[in-house]
Simulated scan of single mutants.
Amino acid sequence: MTTPRYHHGDLREAVLARAEAALRETGAEGLSLRKLARDLGVSHAAPSRHFKDKQALLDALAVRGFSRLGEEFASASAGSVVERVQELARRYLAFAIENPALLAVMFSRKHCQSANTSVADAANHAFRAPLDVIAKAQERGEARQGDPTRIGLSAMAAMQGLAAFVNSGFIGDETATAVAGETIARLAESLRPLREGASAQTAERVRSEDTAAPSR
Rank of each mutant, 00 (worst) to 15 (best):
S168E: 12
R216C: 03
E29S: 15
V85I: 15
Q55L: 05
D59H: 05
V105F: 01
A188S: 13
Q145C: 05
T117R: 15
G152K: 04
A45P: 06
A143Q: 04
A14L: 06
R49T: 07
Q145T: 15
S199K: 14
R144E: 14
A74V: 07
E209R: 15
A200M: 12
E189S: 10
G9C: 03
N99D: 01
L153S: 03
R18N: 04
N167K: 03
D173G: 13
T149M: 08
T183V: 15
L191D: 12
A56L: 00
A21I: 02
I151S: 09
R140F: 06
L131P: 01
V82G: 08
E29I: 04
A37T: 06
A28T: 00
H44W: 05
T183P: 04
S77C: 07
A45E: 10
A104L: 05
R144M: 12
R140D: 11
A188Q: 10
S114Y: 08
N124F: 08
A115L: 02
T183Q: 08
G169N: 07
S208C: 05
P148V: 07
K52Q: 13
A22P: 01
K54L: 13
R5W: 02
M106I: 00
R195H: 15
E25L: 05
G65T: 00
A126S: 13
N124P: 01
A89F: 06
L131I: 14
L93S: 02
L36Q: 03
A135I: 04
S80M: 10
A212C: 08
Y92Q: 14
A76E: 14
E182G: 05
S168D: 10
D121T: 09
S48L: 12
A89T: 11
D53P: 03
S108E: 00
C112D: 13
R90A: 12
A126W: 02
N99I: 01
A46K: 03
H7Q: 12
I171R: 10
G30T: 10
L191I: 08
M1P: 12
R84W: 12
S208E: 14
E204L: 13
D39V: 10
H50Q: 02
E182F: 05
G141K: 05
S32I: 03
G161Q: 08
P47G: 08
